[in-house]
């Protein structure tokens, strides 16, 4: 605090509270809509206090999905989303940490070539190579499978960079000491590098879990069977027609369920989340 200006402090709080409410309003409306009967929501204006259909709506979508559009149970979708998010987060961390270990701690021919090869993938998001990637996955017979959902998305330049940056800050003395004590590279990796990387791994895990959970275009392309839908895809499949034909109460219950796991991860692991966000962008 540079100086004491009570009115400015009041103004700051007012702006923040207003911002917070504006940010939270869509969530509140969603929650309210998910606790009413469809007829109640269809009334204009819809009620703005929660109704008594919470259990009915949520158990309906978890067990059997919507009643008119997609009938896939949301519990299956949540499971699929979890598998996809965990698969992408763990897969990315695993392959990037060993790749950057190789790039930082070894001298070998073509080292920089491989480094640049990984680097360039930063420039090729899925969105710009939709159809050929789809063809490759379809030729490999990976449509409608967990492997198809996760594998194409686990190569990540950002994770490799983050680990490389971090490894470069590990003091050389540790590697020297390990070599003097006769430890091989993998022993050094397991006993020194891995324990030191714990915070980076946690930070990356939060970011990649959210990234995996929220994937949209990729699962939209490669899942055609209801049993393989992720939660985010499930919601868009429940939007069957004009705004009066949708079962908004069930769609909103599904939306709440689809938002909950990543939001919980962000709020509970806030420290790692902020660290991961700020560091992966360096």
């Amino acid at each position: 605090m540079v100086e004491n200006r009570p009115w400015l402090t009041v103004f700051s709080h007012a702006v923040l509270i207003l911002g917070m409410l504006a940010v939270a309003f869509p969530l509140y409306v969603t929650f309210v809509a998910s606790t009413h009967r469809l007829e109640d929501i269809m009334q204009v204006p819809m009620p703005l206090v929660p109704g008594d259909q919470f259990l009915a709506n949520y158990s309906q979508v978890l067990a059997a999905g919507g009643t008119t559009g997609s009938k896939a149970p949301v519990s299956t979708m949540l499971f699929n989303s979890t598998v996809m998010a965990l698969g992408i987060a763990i897969g990315k961390i695993a392959i990037s940490i060993i790749a950057s270990f190789a790039i930082v701690y070894f001298r070998f021919p073509l080292r920089m070539f491989f480094f640049w090869m990984i680097f360039i993938t930063l420039m090729l998001p899925v969105e710009v190579r939709i159809i050929p990637t789809f063809k490759v996955v379809s030729d490999l017979g990976m449509l409608n499978s967990y492997v198809g959902l996760t594998l194409p998305l686990i190569a990540s330049a950002t994770a490799t960079f983050l680990f490389r940056q971090f490894f470069l800050t590990i003091p050389d003395e540790l590697a020297e000491a390990a070599r003097i004590d006769g430890a091989g590279p993998m022993r050094f990796f397991r006993d020194v590098v891995l324990p030191l990387s714990r915070t980076s791994i946690a930070a990356l895990f939060v970011i990649q879990f959210i990234y995996g959970w929220n994937q949209y275009l990729w699962p939209l392309l490669i899942t055609s069977e209801e049993s393989m839908y992720t939660a985010v895809i499930g919601i868009s499949r429940m939007l069957v027609g004009g705004d009066a034909a949708n079962e908004w109460n069930l769609i909103m219950a599904t939306a709440m369920l689809a938002m909950l796991p990543p939001a919980v991860v962000v709020v509970l692991m806030q420290k790692w989340f902020v660290k991961g966000l700020v560091e992966t962008e360096k």
Partner: peptide
Amino acid sequence: PYAVAAAV
């Protein structure tokens, strides 16, 4: 809101 999927 960072945790909310774009489609949602």
